[in-house]
Design a protein around this nucleic acid. Structure first.
Lengths: 217, 217
DNA sequence: GACATCCAACTGGGATACAAGTAGGGTACG
DNA sequence: CGTACCCTACTTGTATCCCAGTTGGATGTC
């Protein structure tokens, strides 16, 4: 999730950025609500200037839309965006598997064994949020194989942005818990063998089954 | 290149952003030079506030690094960034070919025939910049196959950011003009047949040959 | 001449002041 | 009662002001 905790050394603009972002992810600031620079500045005990900078960044990242002279609206992801994000993450995960050097690949299963166990536990105990975080980390591991920080930062932004819609569509997973786990083990197997073609196809299938065209996990 | 022309309706911050960005791409603001908010504000006849917003955005996009109380430095791409960008663009182009629906694939050769001819012309006449722009459009076409605006916007940002280093490494191409064209035709062939595995491998090769690990074209 | 110190002139970060535009409600008029 | 209008209370966008931190050169000292 990488909700960067408000560091003491950070600038006011950074604090504002992470505060607003966290509030949206928590559901504290609901989709469709209008954000006022004045209001935010007051609650954060700072002036409008850093708040404004934060909102601009949040717009670049897709969290809000700023309407001139009217305000910043907390955006919903459109169906298209959800699909496009899934396809983009697919591309990055596949590229990670494709570029993985053998040493990294072999360590992968060991590194993810614990994660998979805990996924199962979360599914059985009905811990939606816990499962979501674990699954996100699981998928991220494939991108990490590429040893490419640029891909990772792009991937992280897409995944974070989708966190809410992932939570929302979680029930679909919980109806057939074993299938999701099986799909994950399947992906891991392909990745470990370095079979990126099979991986890509399995990931297509996984994305499809998990939620029509929703998030990836 | 998409150097967004300074629109009259745009805000001062937008004007500042596109002005500075264009100046860097033109080589007017050289890598390593220090930008002063005051100075930029003066030449653009506006206050520091919009300039400041523009510089912040440019930092997010990787063009400059802002040092507190010192100024904004026009950044050079590190070798790592060049490599990582090439790998990321590789992932997106391959994904485009993979996701292309047959109808789009078939139109591709026709759509790029003219481009390829003009590439050849630019190579023969020694028009470096012209060739660079054409080659960038050529590669972009593969991403367009995915019909995914998110991928495209990510790709565009990477490609723009790399424009200068592409120009710089152009001479390597001009030493063996026929090879570059042949590689492009080869890529196009794989794409048209929908053979994304072969496409990915050929693109690896193409990137390697064009410039060790430099830009993609 | 080499080095430490200090100071003045910068820098960007943030707060505040002002300008310009929007939306919505109250009011006057038909 | 319906409608057009206007005015007020908001909103963001930009300009200006203040502050703290950095830097590099001038100065004094050894």
């Amino acid at each position: 999730m990488r909700v960067s905790l408000a560091q003491q050394g950070a600038s006011a603009a950074d604090r504002a950025h992470s505060h607003i972002r966290a509030a949206i992810m928590r559901g504290d600031l609901t989709v469709g609500s209008m954000l006022s620079e004045n209001e935010l500045a007051a609650t954060l005990s700072m002036s409008r200037t850093p708040v404004r900078a934060a909102l601009t960044r949040l717009q670049d990242e897709g969290w809000v839309t700023i309407y001139a002279q009217r305000g910043a609206l907390v955006r919903e992801l459109t169906a298209d965006e959800v699909r496009e994000s899934a396809e983009t993450r697919h591309a990055l995960e596949s590229a990670g598997v494709r570029r993985a050097d053998p040493a990294r690949r072999e360590g992968l299963a060991a590194r993810l064994a614990d994660n998979l166990d805990r996924q199962e536990g979360a599914l059985l105990s009905g811990d939606v949020q816990g499962f979501a975080v674990l699954a996100m980390r699981f998928h991220r591991a494939f991108v990490e194989l590429a040893a490419n920080s640029m891909m990772l930062s792009i991937y992280d932004r897409l995944q974070d942005r989708q966190y809410l819609s992932i939570l929302r569509s979680a029930d679909r997973i919980f109806r057939e818990p074993q299938q999701a786990i099986a799909a994950h083990r399947n992906l891991l197997g392909h990745a470990q063998r370095g079979d990126w073609v099979a991986f890509a196809e399995a990931l297509d299938d996984h994305q499809e089954r998990s939620h029509g065209l929703d998030a990836t996990w």
